[in-house]
């Protein structure tokens, strides 16, 4: 006898079996436990039942299959309908998330929970602060498992906007991660978001790829120095090079303002062999020289990239050469 079939709590529910159609393709051989639980879920959903036993049922199903969006969404609706304790739910979700690193649904569920909790505490700064701290602490735990987890980072961007975490603490968190691995591009990407979407000084709605005249000069300087320092640690790391280009574009500054810096990694003598410590520096200089009209130098840099330092992208570098004229 199944878990629910023999349970008096569920006496009143007639489970709805799965209709798989005739000769179903890729039919999954469910365990009896899963098939039974899903039968009860279909029944409670059909009856639009939102009750404590639905929370137990959904928890049980999630323990067998955490990638089940319907179950998550129905659980969220049930929690909100019952006015259940969100902190208790968050605690439980933390454990599920740690066990299911690649899961999409958990993060959306969390977003629903925080949204709801936020409404109840939006006038209580102390409560909000403690919520922010516990969220950050949990994400740190997730990053210990995988510091590039896309779902966690997307959720983090959402939390930063929701709880207004555009502050020094957030930048320090990123720097901790970058100290562990300066090639963690997710951390770089998050830094760009935190710095250049800060409502205190950014133009609302300014896109990541466009100039924002409102960014203070000292912030641009700080970011440029930060990325430059990282570049010296590992010149062939593309992340800070992309970051520098992004910062210059945001600040409306010319690439040539960093010509000297990029030149640190590129020595092309009149005679003899060149010394290239970073293909990204060479790429950067090719753009600098093209913008300054020094096409011959730019062409030489792009040729070196295509023929020697980044040959897999030769077609791309050649295309860049054709656009020099």
């Amino acid at each position: 006898m199944g878990k629910y079939e023999g349970d008096p709590v569920w006496d009143d529910v007639v489970p709805i079996p799965q209709d798989d159609g005739e000769g179903a393709l890729a039919a999954i051989a469910y365990t009896d436990e899963y098939a039974e639980a899903m039968g009860y879920l279909r029944a409670v959903m059909a009856a639009k039942e939102y009750s404590p036993r639905v929370l137990d049922l959904t928890e049980h199903i999630i323990s067998m299959n955490a990638a089940h969006y319907t179950v998550w969404l129905y659980r969220a609706s049930t929690l909100l309908a019952l006015n259940s304790s969100i902190p208790v739910e968050l605690e439980w979700v933390n454990n599920v998330a740690l066990d299911n690193q690649k899961n999409y649904q958990i993060w959306h569920h969390r977003q629903i929970l925080i949204d709801h909790l936020y409404d109840s505490m939006s006038s209580d700064p102390a409560a909000l602060k403690s919520l922010a701290e516990s969220e950050v602490a949990f994400m740190t735990e997730m990053f210990n498992e995988d510091s590039k987890n896309y779902h966690v980072w997307s959720y983090r961007q959402w939390v930063v906007r929701k709880l207004d975490l555009f502050d020094k603490g957030e930048i320090e968190c990123i720097e901790t991660l970058l100290r562990q691995d300066v090639r963690n591009n997710s951390a770089w990407s998050h830094r760009f978001f935190v710095v250049f979407s800060n409502p205190k000084y950014c133009t609302p709605g300014s896109k990541a790829t466009e100039y924002d005249p409102k960014i203070p000069g000292e912030i641009l300087d700080r970011e440029i120095e930060f990325a430059k320092a990282a570049t010296f640690e590992a010149p062939q790391n593309q992340s800070p090079w992309n970051y520098l280009r992004g910062v210059l574009k945001k600040g409306g500054r010319k690439l040539s303002s960093l010509e000297c810096f990029a030149g640190e990694f590129v020595k092309i003598p009149e005679v003899g062999e060149e010394d290239i410590k970073s293909s990204h520096a060479l790429d950067f200089l090719a753009d600098v020289w093209a913008q300054k009209g020094e096409n011959e130098k730019a062409d030489k840099a792009l040729t070196l990239l295509g023929d020697k330092y980044d040959r897999i992208r030769k077609n791309y570098w050649d295309w860049r050469r054709t656009s020099l004229k």
Binding site: A27, Y34, N65, H68
Partner: peptide
């Protein structure tokens, strides 16, 4: 063809 029980993660 029919998928074994561990494919339950792909149920959705």
């Amino acid at each position: 063809r029919n998928l074994p029980a561990p494919f339950v993660a792909a149920d959705a």
